[in-house]
């Protein structure tokens, strides 16, 4: 095989490889969001984050607007400190609120961002004050049982009082 055909084939092979890499990067991966498109970071304190992990999505009205950057425990306030990076093309008022939500019944947990009504917009490093932590199933069940028991208790005492 002569030199020119050999180089042609190798060139074709390398080009094909790079095309496949670009396809993986842009069509399959999410290079556009985490890339140089620009993000700003906001922080929020939650009393409970449930199963929230790094890289979990931040959604507003169901649209992906950013990702959780890091999660750590704040020993000053004794709660969870969550850093989120939001894409710069999305602006939110400073009085926006965040909550830890679950997609579906068994789905992953994500941060839901609800826009507020203030004129001032969130900047890099700002803190979102209005937060709601994750629902913990045990506490919900506990609360429900407690309420039921209380209802049952008041019913019983009322009938007890009514009987004599």
């Amino acid at each position: 095989m002569n030199r020119a055909t050999l180089n042609l084939w190798v060139g074709f092979f390398v080009l094909l490889g790079f095309l496949a890499f670009l396809m993986l990067a842009f069509k399959v991966g999410n290079l556009n969001l985490d890339g140089s498109g620009g993000t700003y970071e906001v922080v929020a304190h939650f009393d409970n984050i449930g199963q929230l992990k790094e890289r979990a999505p931040v959604r507003s009205s169901g649209v992906l607007v950013g990702r959780v950057h890091s999660v750590r425990f704040d020993t000053l306030h004794y709660n969870a400190e969550v850093h989120m990076v939001i894409d710069t093309q999305y602006h939110f008022p400073v009085d926006s609120s965040v909550s830890v939500l679950t997609s579906g019944i068994l789905g992953e947990q994500y941060v839901g961002l609800d826009a507020g009504g203030d004129d001032k917009m969130l900047k890099n490093g700002d803190e979102i004050k209005l937060t709601q932590g994750a629902m913990v199933l045990e506490r919900l069940i506990g609360q429900f049982l407690f309420n039921k028991a209380q209802e049952g208790g008041t019913d019983k005492t009322s009938t007890d009082k009514g009987a004599p």
């Binding site: 990067a25 069509k27 399959v28 991966g29 999410n30 985490d34 890339g35």
Partner: peptide, 15 residues
């Protein structure tokens, strides 16, 4: 199919 894939695959961590 494509949008869930794009949401889950990260350029640095996976590719």
């Amino acid at each position: 199919f494509w949008s869930q894939m794009q949401a889950a695959v990260d350029f640095h961590h996976d590719i």
